[in-house]
Design a binder for these strands. Structure first.
Lengths: 152, 152
DNA sequence: TTTTCTGCAAACGATTTGCATACAC
DNA sequence: GTGTATGCAAATCGTTTGCAGAAAA
C-alpha cells in the first residue's frame, strides 16, 4: 500500500521554503489524514474543523490548501461541481495518482487505480515534443447502481 | 476529417426539445464555427460578438452556451484558468474528443488526437461495473518551446 | 524582534437569476 | 395568442485580498 504524508513531512517541507509551522496548517493536514480517500472542498474542511472544535478562518483554510498543494502534499482536483477539491498525494512521486470515475446521474466519484497512460505519454513526447509531467483523467458515465436503476 | 455541426443541426435539435430558434443562439454557434479549434469562454464569445456588431447580453451568452452543451453541440471544458471554456463537438458520437496538453509554464493548450483509452475503459467496466460514456484527459507539462527556454 | 501568519471584513470575478418586455412559433 | 427567450441589473457563491493584531522563528 502507498504511504502517505505525516505532520513531520509537513514540517520539513515548510522549513525548506521559509514557511512557518502553525497549528492551523497542521490541523488542515490532519483533517485529510483523518479522511482518507475523500475529496474535500475548502468548505468541507472548514466544517470538519468546526465539528472538531478547532475552527479556523475560512480564508486561512483556503491559504493552507493552496500552500499544501504547492508543497506537493495535497492534490487539487476539479469535478465541475462548482468548487475545488483536494486529496492527499501519495509520497512516491513516481506514482501517478489514480483516475476518477464520475457518475453523471448520482454524482458519486469512484477511484480507479491503474496507469495505462505511459505509452500514451511516450507517444505524445514523440509526436509533439511536449514533456508530460502529470495528467488528470476523468471518466464520465453511469455507476453500477444508476445503471440498474435505469433499467426500470 | 471529422465533420462538424451546422446551423441546420442546431435548428433540428432545438425543435426536438420544444426550444426556439433565435438569432442569438444561431450567432453563438456561428462564432464557434468561425473559430475552429479554439477554446472560447463566455467572455470571449461575448467579445467576438461585439466585434461582429451583433452584441447580445452576456446572460444570454451563458444561457446559449449551456443549452448548446445540453444539445451535445458544444463541449464544456475546464482548464483551471478560472472560467469554463467551450469547443464544438464532432458530429460522430462514437468518436471521443481529443486530449489537451496544457503547458504549466506558458499556459498554451495543444490538442492531441489519439484514443488509446478503449482498453482502459473496458478494464474499468470489468473491474467496477462503471459504464464509461465519456472521458476528459488533461496532460500537464512543458511544451517544446518552454523546455528549450528552460535549458538556459 | 523580525518576519510570516491569522482572522475578519470587504473586494472580486465568473456565473445565475428575477422580472418585465420582446419575439418565435 | 401563447409560451419561451432576451436583456438588464441585482444577487449569488466560491475564492482572494488588505490590513491590523498575533504568533512562529
Amino acid at each position: 500500500m502507498a504511504e502517505t504524508f505525516t505532520i513531520t513531512d509537513l514540517k520539513l517541507r515548510l522549513q525548506e521554503r521559509q514557511h512557518k509551522m502553525t497549528p492551523q496548517r497542521q490541523t488542515v493536514l490532519q483533517i485529510f489524514l483523518d479522511h482518507p480517500g475523500e475529496h474535500l472542498s475548502a468548505e468541507d474542511v472548514h466544517g470538519l474543523l468546526r465539528d472538531k472544535r478547532s475552527e479556523i478562518g475560512l480564508a486561512t483554510v483556503y491559504r493552507s490548501l493552496e500552500l499544501l498543494s504547492e508543497l506537493g502534499i495535497l492534490q487539487k482536483i476539479e469535478f465541475g461541481d462548482g468548487c475545488s477539491r483536494y486529496e492527499v498525494n501519495t509520497l512516491d512521486p513516481t506514482q501517478h495518482h489514480h483516475h476518477h470515475l464520475i457518475c453523471t446521474k448520482c454524482g458519486k466519484v469512484i477511484e480507479f487505480e491503474e496507469d495505462l497512460l505511459d505509452d500514451l505519454e511516450r507517444d505524445i513526447k514523440t509526436k509533439t515534443g511536449f514533456s508530460v509531467q502529470d495528467h488528470q483523467v476523468k471518466f464520465f458515465g453511469l455507476c453500477k447502481e444508476c445503471q440498474a436503476a435505469g433499467e426500470n
